[in-house]
Nucleic acid binder design. Structure first.
Lengths: 303, 303
DNA sequence: GCGAATCGATAAAGGAGCCTTATATTTGCT
DNA sequence: AGCAAATATAAGGCTCCTTTATCGATTCGC
């Protein structure tokens, strides 16, 4: 395998026509060029230059190799150019996957922070379920996953047990909230209890087994006013007093209607939000910056 | 500039997934791979791998660089492949230019020799006048020129005065011959004198000033039977007794008709045939082989 | 033609880089 | 918990690279 440094020397010799000029152009001394050309000729197995009066002439083999050398050096420059994007302080790419609620709250906040601190950093965001985010992290397609686990939820808990080799960065705890009109009596207290709201009408998502079970535990059966899975629709229905709703705390902040407030449910299992990554990748500045921004975003939200 | 050895290490790490396997594949020890990857990361300015349990994982920068590394290594392999043709013992190319008479005599003989001694060597032959061959040699487009100078010919001598930096390899001395039927009385002697042939009819080339002047010196004016510049036509005309002809010794051997013989003219200026090349290029095996073959061909012809 | 200047070749010495052996540390599997 | 496997680190030895100094060859100007 040819040494690209020597190939560079060859191209300079070809360009300038003398060893001395090539040496000056390369910042070397003339004997260094002489040495490298000799080594290159030994590697090539054939003379590459011949003395011609004061300077040197390239042989046919020398001209052919010089031409190939240009291609090699161009490929090396291309590699350097591409890596310059990664190595640039604050630049580069980082790949992130997050579940839906995280995408509308933590991720935008973190990206807003990064826009100030690392304006050149490009974050590639993918919205997926927690299970596929975990897969993507294992396969290396993403650098960081924002996930959640549902404490005491036997179904979901089995799905998102993270690989023990991965590192968790706790971000926030997500409380289940009741969405209710701002002038509702229960809005007066900081938290609410399900039993207080036994007589209300409800706007529910399709996935409602946990909620119904909790109502049963509290001794009532909820009256259903509407069913929708769209978070924004739920907000509007509550604002127009169609009924109350339950929603994850993270989703609450995505849409702020003055007529609607959210009050956490007391004694409800909390959802833990955390980032997941390979332990050593925190050394990569881009990943570190994103992880820090996520932590900041979560901290600002919880305060 | 990245070290291609380290880029090779990177591609092997990417392929195998572990340093140990990459080291074995490369014939190194594991610490050597570890060292090179560390150096490569320092050159790249960003982490390229992260530990993932027992093995390592490439970062996005690492994967990008590995991809570029493939291109660099491919370019290096291409350079090696191309040079293999030049470095192969006996293979490669050599570029030659020769004047017309040389092309039909010395060059074919030399190439026949090379076909035996260096069957893989490719000789690129260009037929040019001596002046342009000299130019091509100076510009480096050819490696070797077969030329002639006309002793005592003031016109031609000025045109082909070779650059003093070039080296001459004498090949042969070319005598001017008379072409005559085999049963002609003058064919009995080894050489002929122009005065013997005062009564003959002649087949002449367009360029005939030298010959006419010589006839005048010998005291007669030749009778012209035909005029042509084609060497083969001249041969045929002589064979069919249309007339006699004068021809350079080199051209005589291009066509052997049993009815025709050539006899050198006495007291006629000789043409010196020589090869011209840059002094150091004789180190190149291909050029050396061709020069030797030309010398052999000239020696065999003169004997 | 002859001397000065320029260019390449070579030798020796100092230093940097690279590979190895040996050992420690981390991780995964049973 | 303990063994196996993989990476990280340290130190030694060897090679390669660059420089300084000098010589030989060639060119160009007077």
């Amino acid at each position: 395998m040819f040494d690209p440094l020597q190939l560079h020397v060859l191209t300079e010799v070809a360009r300038t026509g003398t060893y001395t000029a090539a040496a000056e152009s390369l910042g070397y001394t003339q004997p260094a060029v002489s040495y490298h050309m000799r080594m290159l000729e030994r590697a090539a197995g054939t003379p590459l230059v011949t003395r011609a009066g004061r300077g040197v002439r390239l042989t046919h083999a020398g001209r052919a190799l010089a031409k190939q050398a240009e291609a090699v050096l161009a490929a090396l420059r291309a590699a350097e150019d591409e890596l310059a994007g990664f190595a640039a302080p604050g630049g580069g790419q980082v790949h992130l996957a997050a579940f839906s609620s995280g995408c509308v709250s933590l991720v935008p906040a973190a990206l807003a922070t990064l826009r100030r601190t690392d304006p050149e950093l490009e974050v590639v965001v993918t919205q997926t379920e927690c299970g596929t985010a975990h897969e993507l992290l294992l396969s290396g397609e993403i650098d960081l996953a924002v996930m959640c686990d549902l404490v005491h939820d036997p179904v979901a808990e089995a799905a998102v047990r993270p690989d023990p080799r991965l590192r968790r960065i706790p971000l926030a705890e997500d409380r289940r909230c009741v969405l209710l009109p701002a002038d509702h009596p229960a809005a007066a207290s900081a938290t609410v209890e399900l039993a207080q709201l036994a007589g209300e009408r409800w706007v529910l998502e399709t996935q409602r087994t946990r909620f119904l079970a909790a109502c049963t535990e509290s001794g009532f059966t909820p009256r259903i006013a509407a069913t929708t899975d769209d978070q924004l629709t739920i907000h509007c229905l509550v604002a127009n007093r169609i009924g109350l709703a339950v929603m994850n705390e993270l989703g609450v902040h995505a849409h702020t209607d003055p007529r609607v407030v959210a009050r956490p449910l007391r004694d409800w299992p909390r959802r833990r939000i955390f980032a997941l990554l390979w332990p050593d990748t925190i050394r990569v500045p881009q990943i570190r910056a994103l992880a820090d921004a996520l932590r900041d975003a979560a901290g600002a939200r919880s305060s």
